[in-house]
Simulated assay, not measured.
Amino acid sequence: MKLNFRKKGSGEPLIILHGLFGSADNWFSIAKELEREFTLYLVDQRNHGDSPHSDEWNYKVMAGDLAELMEDEGIETAYLMGHSMGGKTVMNFALRYPEKVKKLIVADIAPRYYPIHHQTILEGLSSINLHEIKSRKEADDQLAKYVPEAGIRQFLLKSLGRNSAGDFIWKINLSVIMDKIENVGEALDSEGTFDKPTLFMGGANSNYIQEKDKKDIDRFFPNNHLIYIKNAGHWLHAEQPQAVVDTVKAFLR
Rank of each mutant, 00 (worst) to 15 (best):
N4R: 05
F5M: 12
F5W: 08
F5T: 03
F5C: 04
F5N: 03
R6K: 15
R6A: 15
R6D: 14
R6N: 14
R6G: 11
R6Q: 15
K7L: 10
K7G: 08
K7P: 07
K8S: 15
K8V: 07
K8T: 14
G9P: 11
G9C: 01
G9S: 05
G9D: 03
G9E: 03
S10A: 01
S10W: 00
S10L: 04
S10H: 03
S10M: 05
S10F: 03
G11Q: 08
E12D: 12
E12A: 10
E12T: 13
P13E: 01
P13Y: 00
P13T: 00
P13D: 04
L14E: 08
L14W: 03
L14H: 07
L14P: 06
I16D: 00
L17A: 02
L17D: 00
L17V: 05
L17R: 00
L17T: 01
H18T: 07
H18M: 02
H18Q: 05
G19W: 00
G19R: 04
G19P: 01
G19N: 05
G19C: 06
L20F: 08
L20K: 08
L20Q: 08
L20T: 12
F21E: 02
F21D: 01
F21L: 12
G22S: 08
S23M: 05
A24F: 03
A24C: 11
D25C: 06
D25H: 14
N26P: 00
W27F: 15
W27M: 13
F28L: 08
F28G: 02
S29H: 06
S29R: 09
S29Q: 13
S29T: 12
I30M: 10
I30L: 09
A31Q: 01
A31L: 03
K32I: 15
E33P: 06
E33L: 15
E33A: 12
E33W: 04
L34K: 13
L34E: 03
L34H: 09
L34G: 07
E35K: 09
R36E: 14
R36V: 10
E37Q: 13
E37V: 13
F38V: 08
T39S: 11
T39I: 12
T39M: 09
L40Y: 09
L40A: 04
L40W: 08
L42F: 06
L42K: 09
V43C: 13
V43L: 14
V43D: 04
V43N: 10
D44R: 10
D44I: 09
D44L: 07
D44M: 07
Q45V: 15
Q45W: 07
Q45C: 13
R46T: 12
R46A: 11
R46D: 03
R46N: 11
N47P: 02
N47Q: 15
H48W: 05
H48V: 14
H48E: 15
H48Y: 11
H48G: 11
G49D: 09
G49Q: 05
G49C: 05
D50W: 08
D50H: 11
S51C: 00
S51E: 04
S51N: 06
S51W: 08
P52H: 14
P52V: 10
P52G: 15
